[in-house]
Design a binder for these strands. Structure first.
Lengths: 151, 151
DNA sequence: TATTGTTATACTCTATAACTATA
DNA sequence: TATAGTTATAGAGTATAACAATA
């Protein structure tokens, strides 16, 4: 290894990749820990939040929004059903489909858990960034996201 | 729901949180898929990269760098050892410790897999962001990261 | 034929805690 | 007593593919 090297570790874009991964990880450590104290896993929380404020969704839609593949989703939904937080009802319009929606207990869980979680996470963002910085960060993240979604 | 609401979903910082999660997810979908084509899981890849360019590390150090807890790490290392990519040697200085290092095959794997992966990921960053934007994004991410690490 | 959701398999990671051998 | 790593357990998500019912 000389001073001028082709070491891939020197790539300038890694100066963005690493902070992206590390910042996300730092966030997720907090996020995950708090969600667990609420008695849910990340995947279960995602489903609850996705279903919150809806009249119910088909598995396909939940799968797309949460990035959980359909095979896995069945298991996640099974566990949420066991907890009494969701229920599955047949879909009239397409009898292949099943509508998954929050039960009363699920709605109660959503209304308790989501604001609590938001309130927990909020200070970390507001302490770390000014409103103007949030706007900038958002814009740059979305540009990068778009690049990853193109091809 | 009125126009002026206390819906937690309206929190301004969510305008950053969601792009952070979504951008990371978009990145990870590409990242993960490519790593799998190289025959490694994410955790295994992380360990290989962490060990690359070192003379070997103790489990404690690997655990800290990869954020994999010690119990899990044993399993990850077992699988890498089975693949012949790492080896464990006793540590002279502290006989409770074990030095894990890449085998010749592990080094070969690292030298093949890491640059290939960098080359695969690179265009998404360079296509999406200008060099100046990368600098800004990096700085903002690090500020946010710091906030999550404080307390 | 294609799509929706379930089932099945086998693997990997996770959290947690008890355990051993050192320090 | 404390630390390093392993073992044990139970659970949860992953990829993949085959499957039944329906479109």
């Amino acid at each position: 290894m000389t001073a001028q090297t082709n070491d891939p570790g020197d790539e300038p874009f890694l100066k963005v990749l690493r902070p992206l991964v590390e910042t996300y990880s730092a966030f997720m450590r907090k996020d995950d820990r708090h969600i667990r104290t609420l008695g849910l896993t990340q995947a279960q929380f995602d489903v609850i939040v996705t279903l919150g404020d809806t009249e119910g969704l088909r598995c396909k839609q939940i799968s797309e929004k949460t990035l959980v593949t359909k095979g896995t989703l069945t298991g996640v939904l099974d566990r949420l059903e066991t907890k009494g937080l969701i229920e599955r009802v047949p879909c009239d319009k397409d009898r292949r489909s099943i509508i998954t929606r929050l039960t009363d207990r699920g709605v109660e869980c959503f209304e308790r858990v989501f604001p609590a979680h938001i309130a927990y996470i909020k200070p970390f963002f507001e302490r770390g960034l000014s409103p103007a910085e949030m706007v900038t960060l958002r814009a740059l993240l979305l540009k990068l996201k778009k690049s990853f979604e193109t091809t």
